[in-house]
Design a protein around this nucleic acid. Structure first.
Lengths: 354, 354
DNA sequence: ATTAGCACTCTCGTTTAACGAGTGCTAACA
DNA sequence: TGTTAGCACTCGTTAAACGAGAGTGCTAAT
């Protein structure tokens, strides 16, 4: 059942060639380009066996062979070697990400841009889910007699705010009191927890003015919490795929683009994936059965986990792309490490960058 | 030089037919469908004249006629009549926009979604430029000993904030003092003004601790101001265009999608357009020479101006779409009117909705 | 000024044929 | 027994040829 050494060599050669040229590869061209010391006829026999085992397919009788999802899977798991990034790519990543280290969302977006530029594929990046973040304080700030700002700050420094307009004026005292009450009630609890337990009643409605204000503020409070939970998703390089031969058909291209119009759905899918570099090939995806999806995770303060990813046809340079993504996520995690908490994390990075 | 009544009728018929069917229209079908009381031969002669005047073109000798940009321009300026929206569309707009009146960005995004659903074209919506907004106050809030939140609030209730991590700890006093100083320095000035005049020095650096903190905060302050100036752009329904016959060619589709990948550029273009319902057809656009762009403006508090727009091929239902956009922007402007400031604005709305 | 008639043009879909790439099989060979 | 050369066969791709259909442009009649 296992593949012979020669079969592996041939399979590798076919994959390499097909990834490069996007055309079914024949026995003769394999024999010529990669000298395996055997004739086309022998290769043909091996190919036939490989096909029977499900590693190759045949568009039609008289065409060359094309690697199947199973072949790519074998390649990713066993055959491929880690690639060293080109000096140019390394420089690009270092330069472009260091430009805005202190600004979180911007950096994430840059990472997505970078990734699509280097890989020439469609890419995305998303900010970490903050379900486990805990609330630090809640502030209500006055704008004018009917307008106020509701602001929620988490222990980790995440901020979200909403501007609301009330139908009736409020007093500064009520505002301060409500801020304080809410902070006391919610401080230290996780966003998820607060949002799920709909305990709106215990914010203390002893004073009448407060009760009215509370009634107006609470719905917005919940919505703002939801906003805070929402991860931001940045997509880049969608149009890159138009340059690939697998998307010259308008239907394929349409299907591809439509995937990304459903941002919420896409976000959910991506959040559900495991951490680390994860590759799912073709049929392994429940939707997008002719795509490969590669995701990788980065850390913020060593805890929160965000994701970046690349989407393309199953025919892609798995070795290069996974290496790039590993380098990139290590770089990101390092950027987002708290100044204080240096240590073992860095050592790990070093090793992987090699 | 002016067109005869009959020529106008024929032109109108051709446009109507072509917009509907997307195929060059011949003299015979015009004569049959729209009874103008003349024979195909007569229509042929008129068509020939219209072509000479630049209103029609000829894909090739033996094909029907196609309206030129000039024809559409004439149609938009003179021929088309305002359309009444269907009850269904009206209901849709009213329902969907009223769902979230108090949340600004969300409403804008919904408007874009709505627009693309109703028109079956690509659409966008952007929040108003806030160049003229004035600063109300600046607040620095502590998160932990090295992390703080910088928050800028405008008189109109716009909020933007950035979380920053300092390399050295700060004191609460320094924070409060700097907040106050900055507010005093900048309150009442427009964002644009503050950003352009790089007067960073006059924020009072008398105390030493303050001076250090200020040095860390100011760069972020400027960047945050820039963020505040940036309008948000929401695009929706990009993939709708794949269903149109003019975009069955992959190259066309690619060009179209690429326009929208350049968000910054696109935003600039759109900001430069006049207020009200503006239609630019084909060659009238400097880029996108085979597209028509229709934009309309809505108001916030009767002052700030935001834009929504629709992009499609020059072949589109100008009458319907402009009417929809007028209705939609009136609805938006009404939603975003300050509760206090009712009055003449509403009367105007009523008239236009009719 | 309008219209009928007709030749002419051009596109589009279909058919046919030739070509080439590549396989699969058989038989010869080490 | 594994490897190889040779060859027939398959199938997709391309180009050319052809007919049908749609629509114009022109001319001559009304």
């Amino acid at each position: 059942m296992d593949l012979s050494e020669r079969q592996l060599q041939i399979l590798q050669a076919i994959i390499t060639d097909y990834v490069e040229n996007a055309e079914p590869v024949g026995s003769r061209s394999i024999a010529k380009k990669y000298d395996l010391g055997v004739s086309p006829a022998t290769i043909r026999n091996e190919m036939s066996d490989l096909e029977e085992m499900g590693y190759l397919t045949h568009p039609h009788t008289s065409a060359g062979r094309v690697p199947s999802d199973k072949a790519y899977r074998l390649y990713v798991n066993e055959l491929m070697k880690k690639k060293n990034l080109s000096a140019k790519d390394k420089r690009m990543i270092n330069d472009r990400l260091s430009a805005s280290r202190d600004e979180f969302d911007r950096t994430i977006r840059h990472a997505a841009e970078l990734l699509s530029e280097i890989t020439h594929l469609a890419s995305f990046a998303m900010t970490p889910a903050t379900n486990e973040e805990t609330i630090s304080f809640i502030k209500l700030l006055p704008v004018d007699e009917r307008t106020l700002i509701l602001m929620i700050v988490s222990e980790g420094g995440q901020v979200t705010n909403t501007t609301l307009r009330l139908t009736v004026p409020y007093t500064q005292e009520a505002l301060d009191l409500l801020s304080k009450n809410m902070t006391v009630s919610y401080k230290g609890r996780t966003l998820d927890d607060v949002l799920r337990s709909e305990i709106i009643h215990d914010v203390g409605s002893d004073i009448e003015a407060l009760s009215a204000l509370k009634g107006s503020v609470m719905p917005s409070f919940l919505r703002t919490l939801e906003d805070m939970l929402n991860v931001n998703l940045y997509m880049e390089g969608m149009t890159n795929i138009f340059n690939l031969p697998e998307y010259t058909s308008i239907d394929r291209a349409r299907d591809f683009m439509e995937l990304f119009a459903r941002k919420d759905w896409f976000t959910q899918k991506m959040l559900a994936r495991d951490n680390g570099v994860v590759v799912t090939i073709g049929e392994e995806n429940d939707t997008m059965k002719d795509c490969t999806l590669i995701t990788a995770t980065y850390h913020v303060d060593g805890k929160l986990v965000g994701k970046i990813g690349v989407i393309g046809p199953t025919r892609m340079k798995y070795d290069e792309i996974t290496s790039i993504m590993e380098y990139l996520t290590n770089n990101l995690s390092e950027s987002f490490r708290l100044p204080g908490s240096t240590g073992d994390g860095n050592a790990g990075d070093k090793k992987q960058k090699k």
